[in-house]
Nucleic acid binder design. Sequence first.
RNA 1: GCCCAGGUGGCGGAAUUGGUAGACGCGCUGGACUUAAAAUCCAGUGACCAUUAUGGUCGUGCGGGUUCAAGUCCCGCCCUGGGUACCA
Length: 928
Amino acid sequence: MEYNFRDIETKWQSYWDKNKTYKTGIETSKPKYYVLDMFPYPSGAGLHVGHPLGYIASDIYSRYKRLKGFNVLHPMGYDAFGLPAEQYAIQTGQHPAITTENNIKRYKEQLTKIGFSFDWDRELRTSDPEYYKWTQWVFVELFEHWYNNKSQKAEPIINLVNIFEKDGNTKLNAACNTVLVVFSSEDWKSFSDHRKQEILLDYRLAYLADTLVNWCPELGTVLANDEVKEGFSVRGGFPVVQKEMKQWSLRISAYAERLLNDLEKLEWTDSLKEIQRNWIGRSEGAEMIFKIKDMDAEMEIFTTRPDTSWGVTFMVLAPESDLVNKVTTQEYKDDVQKYIDLTKKRSERERMTDAKNVSGQFTGAYAINPLTNNEMPVYISDYVLMGYGTGAIMAVPGHDSRDFKFARHFNLPVIQVVVKKGEEPTDTATWEDSCDSKEGKMINSGFINNLDVNEAIEKTIQFIEEKGIGKGRINFRLRDAIFSRQRYWGEPFPIYFKDGLPYPVAKENLPLELPEVDAYLPTEKGEPPLGRAKSWKNEDGYPYELSTMPGFAGSSAYYLRYMDPNNKNALVSEEANEYWQDVDLYIGGTEHATGHLVYSRFWNKFLFDIGWVSKDEPFKKLINQGMIQGRSNFVYRVKGTNRFVSLNLRKEYDITPIHVDVNIVSNDILDTEAFKNWNPEYKNADFVLEDGKYICGYAVEKMSKSLYNVVNPDVIIEQYGADTLRMYEMFLGPLEMSKPWDTNGIDGVHKFLRKFWRLFHDENNNFALSDDNPADNELKVLHKTIKKIQDDIERFSFNTSVSAFMICANELTELKCKKRGVLEPLLVLLSPFAPHITEELWQFCGNSESISYAVFPEYNEKYVKESTYEYPVSFNGKMRFKIELPIDINPKEAEEKVLKHEMAQKWLEGKSPRKVIFVPKKIVNIVI
RNA sequence: GCCCAGGUGGCGGAAUUGGUAGACGCGCUGGACUUAAAAUCCAGUGACCAUUAUGGUCGUGCGGGUUCAAGUCCCGCCCUGGGUACCA
């Protein structure tokens, strides 16, 4: 029989489906292994060839682990809420649920064709009410908890109420909003219920507060920091502005320290951990209070360098700071207001591109330096950000380049307070920039003079704490996650409002299902789309929240739901969670490094705190697959004509390169007839050929519809089969590296599979295996391959395993080996990579069960042991000839034998060697 | 600017711990089989020099260094990709 991949692949895909070959359950007799892919957003464009790269890798690993005796959980689902379906709904009126349903259907078809070993019974989608019930449930739990900094964990809000009743908030150390009043237990008891709820809201892990948000007018919604890039929305590329709004936020900042420290436990790449470290951004320093002269006001600042306090010559407030109004004197009111208006007008983008220009405005106020008692002018400037620290800084122009530029611009004094080792202080008037102050000795700095920087920092903090003018503090860059979106297609908040305060929907009433609306647009009043829903109120007539949750809500705990996807009573049962624990291997793209991967670690830690899950980190090992780039093709049109000239002749003409669909190009040769039909514009095109062919140019670019370089996996599967696609994607290069997709090389992999097929067949294409005992050299090939494949899979080097399979097939073909004792184990070895062809041949071999239930062959060293080794002999490091020597030869003997060799004589030219280096089983090097 | 990857033939890439640079595949060239094509198989394929067969020189982004030995380690630089930023 011929290798008919089409029949074979459909046959086995329906077999796996019917027999539920990959269904998984709790099996305590086997060790568990959980392999997870980052689930896709089902877009309208379907999968292109780049998407399945990670899925193929994780599928190979899953199948390998199964063969190794593990009970493998390997699920797939859909991140089904999202903007594109909603944008489409706005344009066409089609309900996003329908769009999403259609897209999922297409995704599933495409995924099925690739032959993944997913347990499809666990499939989930985040837009399913049975699923988002649990997203809402977790939100309610967040609402009902606060973070105790003393115990370093989340605790029920009722504990907090008890504390307030006993002590007020005087002894409390909690993560909370900054606008706080100190109150005693008596105060607390005297507060109205309304007031009590207001105060509690400042402590909840999910809280409602006025926040400065990234508002995208075009999308009509707010965006999280990681959804904005360079002042534009990541999705859609629309401008984003800063705006103050009442929004739900999640108090992820409470977990900053734990999120940072626990990175150490994870088997993630160093670069990914580094991205997270930077995102969390821990800095140690001090908080200090500066009193404002002649006013009842003070400025609180954060600095990492309290030691440089003697070098402070002015203070700067963020224009958005509440303090601005308070400190500005009458004289400067107008100017200050003008400056504020100016900054508001400037978009984030302008502020960024304009980083070199200095701007600011004096407020008329002076702050008193608590260490020197000097008076310092207070400015406002947009280089100080409200979102970081306290929105106010002490400026040290001598040692900070932004402060320096500001000082020069406004003619403010510059004082040097740190001198580098071995250098002398210089006149700051001659400086062109601030100078580095990470190391050195203090000068002009009162009682810390002559101390090293580190000592000086310590001493200053000690001093300000004693004097009560400040204290040591750790600051994080990580901001609380804004959790409201003014959109339709997301999880509704399980929240209703009573007297302007939020209350959670009772858990037994979840899910709170997304209501129908007549249009997916804001209301006339500017409310989110849910404002259009009829009777969007609870049974007592209280209105529900109108915003919905953001994209990362549904993906923050989905890995837990897969463990127990149909549980009606819990996100995941204790039993299922105890068994599956955490994700052993997580594969996905780096684009989620700061978004999803931070949020889900945070959710998981919260769920760990409240006892829902047994592990405090969700993803033990994580691998980022590289991007598959597109390989575009070009044709060259002679300007002003419909004539196209082949690549190497284009220099002779005045031409415009035009992207051409890569699907009508093969090995860079254009199918000219297909080209004419591709676009009516080219119907009458004529061509200047070279060697009778039209050769296209190429470039590596992003894979994108607009560049006509998108390759669809369905097309590849139709032409070569899924097994070829799977192996070729792996063969392309190392998993973690980005690389261009070039269909040209795929023949090689396909040829390999046909060659492999022929190993099991005679000249007449009849299945033919012999039961003779394999010869030593045949067993050697097999065991060499077992070792190589196993090592490669363990270190995710799938490209080299494909090579190893090719080498193996070449060698067995050479040996004309048709022996069951060699070929049957080889089938098992190959099955994770090419599951269809191996199932078929496995069945031919007389097996009645799926090859997925086979056992990975055991490597036996004795078959690959050699008695000799062919040593490369080099002279001064240059390889000159080879000599075969016994494996257990001693260095002295080896040296003698090598030097006796005629080639050695030639290279020695009569001289005697200065030194001979003999490395067993490696090399001989002769130094002359 | 800072942080992290990466730079090896015409192309994708291999070299796992410092030990034969270019495995494997594509492409290309030539050949076998065939009426022919497809498929398959065989040989060659880093550059340059030499050619009588054996050969020789150079070569892993650039410049230096360590070492018996460097694609791999160290120092300095260039380029590409990604992340991040008026972060105090």
